[in-house]
């Protein structure tokens, strides 16, 4: 009887460990700084979900551009950001180009959070390696620090990237 109880406890423990979702190691590293945001302060839950969803957005975008699959964009993109990426993917398909991103991480800084909590603007300083391939041959490869201006809006269960614009580096 006691052995059965031990086995049952061990099985429960194993099941609970198994059911815990492991941290996604393939996600790019995103760190959010929200000290200077205004006029609304970022809620604790939002301060976790925004960098998580932004990381998923980049992972999705990298895969969509590498495999020329615009259907992947639906999950984390909306509005102009989604339209622009879909157009680029359509052009990539037409010309036989693929883009490969090797993501080395993002430093996100929240700069505007609307009073009603329905829009957040962020600045992203990203370090990425970009490879452009034509028919499988690398025609361009560069390691760059890029600065993005990002607009995110809340969706049903996540934050979506609504606008993603590369801007020249601005030194404060």
């Amino acid at each position: 009887m006691r052995i059965a109880l031990y086995i049952f406890t061990a099985l429960c423990l194993f099941a609970s460990l198994w059911s815990q979702e492991p941290a996604d190691a393939s996600l790019p590293k995103v760190v959010l700084a929200a000290e200077n945001v205004g006029p609304r302060q970022i809620e604790e839950l939002t301060s976790k979900s925004v960098p998580r969803d932004y990381a998923y957005a980049w992972k999705t975008m990298a895969r969509a551009l590498a495999e020329n699959r615009s259907d992947l964009l639906d999950a984390y993109f909306t509005g102009f950001a989604k339209d622009n990426l879909a157009r680029r993917i359509a052009d990539q398909k037409r010309t036989g180009i693929n883009t490969r991103y090797i993501d080395h991480g993002h430093k996100l800084e929240a700069i505007f959070y609307s009073p009603a909590g329905d829009a957040m603007q962020l600045r992203d300083r990203a370090r990425v390696e970009i490879q452009l391939l034509d028919g499988g041959n690398v025609i361009h490869r560069e390691q760059v620090n890029l600065q993005y201006l990002v607009l995110m809006t809340p969706g049903a269960d996540r934050w979506l990237v609504r606008d993603l614009e590369t801007t020249p580096e601005v030194h404060p």
Partner: peptide, 28 residues
């Protein structure tokens, strides 16, 4: 090859002279 945020184009050009980039290629 001209690769932008919302467009990718590929075309033949002649080197040694100016390569025109049309207004419609850089709207984004």
């Amino acid at each position: 090859y001209l690769v932008g945020p919302a467009s990718v184009s590929k075309r033949k050009v002649q080197l040694g002279s100016g390569i025109p980039v049309e207004a419609g290629e850089i709207e984004h």
